[in-house]
Design a binder for these strands. Structure first.
Length: 268
DNA sequence: ATGGTTGGCCCCCAA
């Protein structure tokens, strides 16, 4: 008997402000597992009944005051994976991992919020850029030592790796999110055993975005987007890849995030 | 043309 598992990732940019939009996400994307980034809520202030209201009663959060914050909400039981690196020694709530109990073998879920990296693509002039590159290198090294199996890795990775993951490749080569140091670093991390599950479905010559800046008057007309949000699966799950959705309409939801949800369905 | 908007928080920071 074939079962499906649908995983969604969304940088929600404040879970307390936008929690009502998650009802629409459940209708449109119907995820079994929902991974959020930039929740901006310390764990005691994460809406306590949100998971049960969405039909995702198993909730794990890792939040802090003001910035960052990640969460996993799941229809399936979750077991927190505690033994994970403290990335860059900052304890800054950018990653949470869990095993989702599928009834057969569990599926491991990693939810990442990679540092945005500031404006200047130079690690001497801009420590935030160095932090981003160091985070990527640590993640690569971790998965090199711990090859992923039955693993789904999602999140706002804050890097648009391919030429058609940005609205203008040449113009953005010097813009943080698309510099060669970042895209090669992300490639090397992914090559530790992952497949880019969304590009598996979408040819590389097609433009594909998940984020449009708030600073454009009409995001759809200017369409200066970037693909910053990703879903990867370990290579053993390639044969399970079933379908995907980019919920671009979410960019027009009332008081929406500047990111839109990305959804993947696996046949497990 | 180096703009523009948003959220959280303590009047500025990060994105």
């Amino acid at each position: 008997m074939t079962k499906t598992l649908t995983v969604a990732t969304w940088n929600i940019n404040s879970v307390r402000l936008r929690q009502d939009l998650l009802t629409t996400l459940m209708t449109d994307g119907a995820p079994d597992i929902l991974c959020l980034q930039e929740t901006k809520a310390p764990d005691p202030l994460f809406p306590s009944d949100l998971g049960s209201r969405l039909g995702l009663p198993h909730v794990l959060t890792r939040g802090m005051k003001g910035y960052n914050g990640v969460a996993i909400l799941s229809r399936l039981e979750l077991q927190l994976i505690e033994a994970m690196p403290d990335w860059c020694g900052k304890s800054d709530c950018r990653h949470i991992a869990a095993n989702a109990l599928t009834g057969d073998h569990p599926i491991t879920v990693h939810n990442f919020y990679i540092p945005a990296g500031g404006d200047i693509p130079d690690r001497e002039a801009n420590p935030k850029y160095g932090h981003k590159l160091d985070f990527i290198a640590e993640a690569k090294a971790h998965f090199a030592s711990n090859p992923p199996m039955r693993t789904v890795l999602v999140g706002d990775l804050n890097i648009a790796p391919l030429e058609n993951d940005v609205w203008n490749h040449r113009q953005l080569l010097g813009v943080v999110s698309h510099t060669p140091a970042e895209t090669s670093g992300l490639d090397e991390w992914r090559e530790q055993g992952f497949i880019d599950a969304i590009r598996y479905f979408v040819p590389h010559d097609q433009k594909l975005y998940t984020w449009w800046s708030y600073r454009n008057r009409d995001w759809r007309a200017s369409n200066r987007g970037r693909r910053l949000d990703h879903i990867w699966v370990s290579r053993d799950l390639e044969t399970c890849l079933s379908r995907h959705r980019i919920l671009s309409d979410a960019r027009d939801w009332p008081r929406g995030s500047d990111h839109v949800p990305v959804v993947l369905t696996l046949a497990i």
